[in-house]
């Protein structure tokens, strides 16, 4: 089954990390991912631009309102997500725990169904 691992954290905190801290976190996560990559379980990892880059569309009466900013002002923000293919929830939980080891972020695991595959070319899928 496909699962999304949604990563939440305070973006101010994440952005205040030094380059070295940031790289250490990424390197650790890469190490954990390696095993999943080798077993063909690892889908794309998506990083979201900070919430100041967000635009929200809401319906107000008959009107579509386009608003600058995120859908909700929250203390922690959705910063990105992983897509993985796992046997069961236990396997995802085990993977997610190792992925976030030593970090204060919050992960939310959500089973995913690919509704339609889309037509994006391969290089868009793997662009960092």
């Amino acid at each position: 089954m496909l699962y999304a691992i949604l990563c939440y954290h305070d973006e101010d905190v994440v952005m205040s990390w030094s380059k070295a801290e940031d790289e250490a976190v990424l390197a650790k996560r890469k190490r954990v991912q390696k095993e999943f990559v080798e077993h063909g379980k690892m889908g794309p990892a998506i990083r979201l631009v900070p919430t100041t880059g967000a635009t929200t569309i809401r319906t107000s009466g008959n009107e579509q309102l386009v608003l600058d900013g995120p859908f909700a002002e929250t203390k922690e923000q959705l910063l990105g997500f992983y897509l993985v293919d796992c046997e069961n929830l236990d396997e995802v939980i085990d993977f997610a725990k190792r992925l976030k080891e030593g970090e204060s972020c919050t992960f939310e695991i959500r089973p995913v169904q690919i509704f339609e595959e889309g037509v994006l070319p391969g290089e868009v899928k793997v662009a960092s």
Binding site: M15, S16, P50, T51, T52, L67, D68, G69
Partner: peptide, 21 residues
């Protein structure tokens, strides 16, 4: 950059603040 981000969060619909950041 941090201060501009803060300013944009306070005034999210100001195009010049977006431009500055």
């Amino acid at each position: 950059i941090r201060l501009a981000r803060l300013l944009l969060r306070l005034f999210p619909a100001e195009p010049e603040v977006m431009g500055l950041l």
